[in-house]
Nucleic acid binder design. Sequence first.
DNA 1: CATACGTCCTGGCTGC
DNA 2: TGCAGCCAGGACGTAT
Length: 285
Amino acid sequence: VPELPEVETVRQGLNQVTLSQEVQGGEVLLTRTIAHPESSSDFLVGLQGTAIAQWHRRGKYLLAELKGVRRAVPLSAGWLGVHLRMTGQLLWTQQDTSLQKHTRVRLFFADQRELRFVDQRTFGQMWWVPPNHAPEEIMTGLKNLGPEPFSEAFSVDYLAKQLRDRRRPIKTALLDQSLVAGVGNIYADEALFLSGVQPQTCCSDLKPEQIERLAASIRQVLQASIEVGGTTFSNFLNVQGLNGNYGGVANVYNREGEPCRACATPIQRLKLAGRSTHFCPQCQQ
DNA sequence: CATACGTCCTGGCTGC
DNA sequence: TGCAGCCAGGACGTAT
């Protein structure tokens, strides 16, 4: 389940291998994957003859800035957007590598290279944003994203103000991408454990010191995972198809009934907003 | 506006 | 052992 740290790891990997090479063609094996343009062939035509100048990340979205390669002065050639959703993977490979079962989109580069989008559950999406359009015009989800967790905008004051008048459980609020961008189910549970806050706590009941700990914990748990290549809690694969160093070191996620690593109390599981939620009833009050 | 919930999908797991 | 049914969840559309 790629969340911010995994997407950031993919971004860094793509910046190491995909830049400044001409897209010479491609193949869409599942048209539903292409969110824009409506026609898959228009998607491929838009990308053809461009090269990626740089990969960016916003929340869990990947954004490749495109440039024309057949001009002396490279012109803006729009954007390629990707959301991995549940099971999406971007793999940098050779075109003659046998296709994975769930291959959805292939982009062909020079020297028989390929950027391959593999996605078992087919929720993942790709967009081609034409030149002279802002990505958020086409990728409408971008408009509803809250601040990046590592930005100055994600301050204690911001979080306190946002939570003050909300009546939702804090866990549900953390999954809302308009509050803070990039946190998903795993990191929400882990950040709440680290901050000692029960996931069911009503947002407006949180005390100032809890909000302060929560803001710090969100950044801490995300940063720690980025530093080990996004493999802290999942069997996530990087662009080379490798799982660096699966840690399996979650404190609470997917540990129902197992002893809390801090106090040995059995970890409890409940359902919030339709999502499994794990916490230590002793450490989180 | 805030919030809740159903929906999309595949494959792994559970229980009969 | 086969197989139906449940579950996992990110974001969006719709309902309240």
